[in-house]
Amino acid sequence: MFERKGTRARFALNTRTRVTVLIAVAAIYLLGVFVWGLFMSPDAYAVHYADKFTPPGGKYLFGADFMGRNMFFRCVKGLSVSLVIGVIASLVSSVIGLVFGVASATAGGRFDKFILLCVDCCMGLPHLVLLILISYMLGRGARGVLLGVALTHWPELTRLVRAEVLQLRTTHYVQAAYRMGKSRFRVAWDHMLPHVLPVYIVGLVLLFPHAVMHEASITFLGFGLPAETPAIGVILAESMRHIATGKWWLALFPGLMLIIAVILFDVIGENLKRLLNPDSGNE
């Protein structure tokens, strides 16, 4: 314990600065891909039959596919599409989770039991099966995927929010606020929101990778976005047809980009958790 002083000083940046930089870099990369893909002209990945199956190199960074389309731009565009769907679905999902969690904890009784039953049902079924079912029922396409992902990712957050609110309700300061004449709304706004918000934000960010991954999965399996959309799932599904003939770049680069995006979301979420948690916040 007496040597600790020296080892601490060696780190030029303190933990909080490092964590903040890490979050910023990850967020900038994801936002960059998202915006670039959103405003990309379709000419960037237009068909050039002359260049079909060009391996990765100078002109084609990630190579070209069976129609001679530039894989790099297609990947960026595809990831952007996947991100849009993932983020929107997560947002919808998180709002459902927040509303159900708060309602469940405050209403109690039968309503609480009903919500918990829904949570258990949703978590008991395999995620992917439920997703495919909903997406298929809604006629696939962007709408089907979006609703499918949105309707299957709320249970974890519902549980977290419910537990947080239940715990808050028993605290002395919340009870004291009631005895001092504060209305239910004032107590929720003044006392509960500041505690629930960090839980919600971290939960939301940690939902993103799940949603993006699941969107890509069901699209890959053919139950998601239509084949003409440049989505990561579609690109990966196409690449499977050529992998046997040695066109490795068609699968490797889109897969890598997807994995990197998912990991970065996780990095942001986990580090936000460290910053917002009062126990680890002073490290």
């Binding site: 314990m1 007496f2 600790r4 002083k5 601490r8 002073n282 490290e283």
Partner: peptide, 24 residues
């Protein structure tokens, strides 16, 4: 400090001896 269970952001100086032996 004697038990060595201070949080990780604590820095200690000085000496704690147990039966004449420095507590590391």
């Amino acid at each position: 400090a004697v038990l060595g269970i201070l949080p990780s952001n604590a820095v200690t100086e000085g000496e704690i001896l147990y039966k004449g032996e420095t507590l590391t």
